[in-house]
Design a protein around this nucleic acid. Structure first.
Lengths: 206, 206
DNA sequence: TGAAATACTGTATATTTGTACAGTATGACT
DNA sequence: AGTCATACTGTACAAATATACAGTATTTCA
């Protein structure tokens, strides 16, 4: 396959940019962007791009350019999970005011399909290093399901949302910190469990 | 704001589904999907959905329905990183044949803008537990940049791509495993460093 | 020098698409 | 009974859009 011309690359990356923002450009919009007076300038570029396999043109459909990529065939659905700063007492209603950001990950990577009851938290403190969860890590949790012994859960303790390990001792549930310095055991019945950990994302400073 | 009718929810989720696949449906396609004989059925639904704030209709533009969401304003650009099964010797050319999957994450979450030299690996073995990197974790790396002391790097050792810590001792670079059981020190000059770790994603089995 | 590919202008047209208007039917609520 | 919102059929039309054809200038390459 021939390589792309400079101009063709420009057109391609313009289409790509628009795709990211959720809109496939029409031929007229491409012409406007590059200052073309003629639509045929766009059309011929698109033809060449298709001939070289860089794009796929669906006949007769508006705004339906497709940019295939070797990655594309591996991609799974990307879902968006609210990153909460703090969880208010009571139910973990996902209020807009508590939202601090958004975590977007594909389903295959985190290994499960998030629901409306999914949310993310940023870990504060070293209390879970024993489970290899570090300060600053981003944890994705699921609100609702009953935790199993050994699960990492988020619980509301003194108004603060804290990560603990859920354990059962003598038939009674407890929460445990995974750090020798914070080796306290809290009866789980006194607490509201906000969610069960499902995934973790860590960024490493360059 | 009024709640959505059952039918309106159906229409909305159909639009959402198509959006995920990269295409916004036209009014005729929506009509076809639901078996409407009239376009006005679609139009009135869209009007009501817009009135209730569930969608945004851009006037006069084909396939330009937008589905706003409280999350939307927080979303950043999602990028797609190839998940490699094995890295062949020599340059880390991203060949299609080595691709095993695709990791999609947004830029804000992993904290940097990946390039074409970015790739992901699945961690095999316990050699990096000391750095809180576990067996099965997914690591995102950047090919190219010179590692700094203390960075986690992927290196090609005996044809296997392995994670190590990059350290400098007596002015000479070494690679070190972060596990007392594998406490060997390898001179870095003998090896090809494939990439520097930038982020980590861990999935927790439900 | 000549051929071929690229990069455009200019004009025209068929199709897709959005939009408007008129009307029917049904259920919920007052 | 009457009003209102919802959920459609049916028809028509204008704007947006894709597409085709004819032609020019420039570069590349043989």
């Amino acid at each position: 396959m021939t390589d792309l011309t400079q101009r063709q690359q420009q057109v391609l990356s313009f289409i790509r940019q628009r795709q990211v923002h959720g809109e496939t450009p029409s031929r007229r919009e491409i012409a406007d962007h590059f200052g073309f007076a003629s639509l045929n300038a766009v059309s011929s570029h698109l033809h060449l791009l298709e001939k070289k396999g860089a794009i796929k043109v669906v006949q007769g459909r508006a705004r339906s350019l497709q940019v295939p990529s070797p990655l594309r065939s591996w991609q799974s659905v990307v879902c968006h999970i609210p990153l909460l700063g703090s969880i208010p007492a009571g139910r973990a209603e996902l209020r807009e005011s508590d939202m601090e950001g958004c975590v977007s990950v594909d389903v295959a990577t985190i290994g499960y399909q998030p629901t409306k009851a999914s949310f993310a938290l940023r870990v504060a403190g070293q209390s879970m290093v024993g489970r290899h969860i570090l300060d600053g890590d981003l944890v994705i949790l699921e609100h609702g399901p009953e935790p199993k012994p050994g699960d990492v859960v988020a619980a509301l303790i003194d108004g603060q949302c804290t990560l603990k390990t859920f354990i059962v001792k003598n038939g009674r549930p407890y929460l445990k910190a995974e750090n020798p310095q914070y080796a306290d055991l809290i009866p789980a019945e006194e607490l509201v469990i906000q969610g069960v950990m499902r995934a973790l994302i860590r960024r490493v400073n360059a």
